[in-house]
Amino acid sequence: MNDPNLSPTSLTRSETVPALRHEPEAPENAPTNPRGTWGRFALICLPYFWLSVFFLIPFVIVARISLSEAAVAIPPYLPVIEWEQGLIGLWEAAQRWSFENYIWLIEDDLYWKAYISSLQIAFISTFLTLLIGFPIAYGMARAPRVWQPTLIMMVILPFWTSFLIRVYAWIGILKIDGLLNQALAFIGMIDEPLVILNTSIAVYIGIIYSYLPFMILPLYSSLEKLDTTLIEAAQDLGCPPLRTFWRVTIPLALPGMVAGCFLVFIPAVGEFIIPDLLGGSSTLMIGKTLWVEFFSNRDWPVSSAVATVLLVLLIVPILMFQRHETRRNEGDT
């Protein structure tokens, strides 16, 4: 029997809305797909296999050569490990390992000065690249969507030309009678040509130009995802533009800044072509010192020790930073 005082609006949700259909839950002991398990396992192992073949194994070979002694032979060192003798031969070889090459790196000031100079040049170049790349990436992220693919293409366009050719082009620009001095003299800014080539300034210019795209692209990736409503909210709350930039934009773009700094700093430390062609003999960097020891002096053990120390100097801070970031992310969650 219908109640005349009952209106349609007084019906409960369960009376007006049909019950949702619940899907049957899978049993807890349901068999897993072995093909999917092996596929995930292969996908995880593939990068580790790549790192083992192209990073770990070459590093072990270089470290083994660094413990050897130089010799007039082919190859120019005495092997300290003979794999065909098994574990017994490995133990006997370990007792003959020599760390004199590493001690030599400490005693000879040429090498630690080269390390310090390389770290200094790489740090300053990375900082200047960040200062130049951030406004470019910010402008690309704030550009209309239609123009962004074209702007990205313009950033990666130099990669279509050989790295060596691009560095050689800077020789023609920076030399005494190069394009830069001719342009400055034509507009009346200088009376005498500037000496830029074969100086540290030329090295900075070459590194910044060569690695600027590696800074711009990660920054653009972070800034492009930036939520503009956060900036608008900060401005509505009375936050000045400069303070909004430091409090909102910079923290949100920090992952791209860190990635870009790593992509520029790591190859800049071991750079050889740019200081050799643009810096001349007065520029001291570890990559150039390594090349001289390996090819000119043919001292493979010392050059291997130089490469091993350089790798440790780069890898250890990166691993420490990644561990710190992992702990911080776990703490945030």
Rank of each mutant, 00 (worst) to 15 (best):
residue 152 I to V: 15
residue 170 W to T: 01
residue 151 L to K: 05
residue 204 Y to G: 09
residue 152 I to A: 07
residue 189 M to P: 11
residue 165 I to M: 07
residue 156 I to S: 03
residue 159 F to Q: 02
residue 190 I to T: 01
residue 167 V to D: 01
residue 200 S to H: 13
residue 159 F to A: 01
residue 193 P to L: 04
residue 169 A to I: 03
residue 160 W to T: 09
residue 186 F to C: 13
residue 183 A to V: 09
residue 157 L to P: 07
residue 158 P to C: 02
residue 151 L to E: 04
residue 193 P to M: 04
residue 176 I to Y: 15
residue 182 Q to D: 12
residue 171 I to S: 05
residue 152 I to M: 14
residue 149 P to D: 03
residue 205 I to H: 03
residue 172 G to H: 01
residue 168 Y to P: 13
residue 171 I to D: 06
residue 199 T to N: 15
residue 160 W to Q: 14
residue 183 A to C: 08
residue 200 S to V: 13
residue 153 M to N: 12
residue 203 V to Y: 02
residue 167 V to Q: 07
residue 205 I to Y: 03
residue 201 I to G: 11
residue 151 L to H: 07
residue 164 L to I: 14
residue 181 N to L: 01
residue 186 F to D: 11
residue 175 K to H: 09
residue 154 M to Y: 08
residue 163 F to Q: 06
residue 173 I to V: 12
residue 172 G to P: 03
residue 188 G to E: 02
residue 149 P to R: 07
residue 191 D to S: 08
residue 174 L to W: 13
residue 187 I to R: 07
residue 157 L to K: 00
residue 195 V to N: 12
residue 180 L to K: 11
residue 156 I to C: 04
residue 169 A to T: 07
residue 182 Q to G: 10
residue 163 F to H: 05
residue 199 T to F: 10
residue 203 V to Q: 08
residue 179 L to N: 03
residue 201 I to W: 15
residue 149 P to C: 04
residue 181 N to T: 02
residue 186 F to H: 13
residue 150 T to M: 11
residue 201 I to S: 13
residue 203 V to G: 08
residue 189 M to G: 08
residue 186 F to L: 08
residue 192 E to Y: 05
residue 157 L to M: 10
residue 183 A to N: 15
residue 203 V to N: 09
residue 203 V to S: 10
residue 184 L to N: 05
residue 199 T to C: 11
residue 202 A to Q: 00
residue 190 I to W: 00
residue 189 M to K: 15
residue 153 M to P: 15
residue 158 P to N: 01
residue 192 E to M: 14
residue 163 F to Y: 05
residue 185 A to R: 15
residue 169 A to R: 06
residue 156 I to E: 03
residue 166 R to G: 13
residue 158 P to I: 03
residue 205 I to T: 11
residue 184 L to S: 08
residue 187 I to A: 11
residue 151 L to V: 10
residue 172 G to I: 12
residue 170 W to G: 00
residue 153 M to Q: 10
residue 196 I to M: 07
residue 154 M to I: 11
residue 205 I to W: 05
residue 176 I to G: 06
residue 173 I to N: 11
residue 158 P to R: 01
residue 169 A to F: 02
residue 202 A to F: 01
residue 188 G to Q: 03
residue 158 P to M: 00
residue 150 T to R: 12
residue 195 V to F: 15
residue 173 I to G: 12
residue 165 I to W: 00
residue 202 A to K: 00
residue 161 T to H: 11
residue 163 F to T: 07
residue 198 N to M: 00
residue 196 I to Y: 02
residue 151 L to P: 04
residue 155 V to D: 01
residue 166 R to V: 13
residue 203 V to I: 12
residue 162 S to G: 10
residue 171 I to N: 09
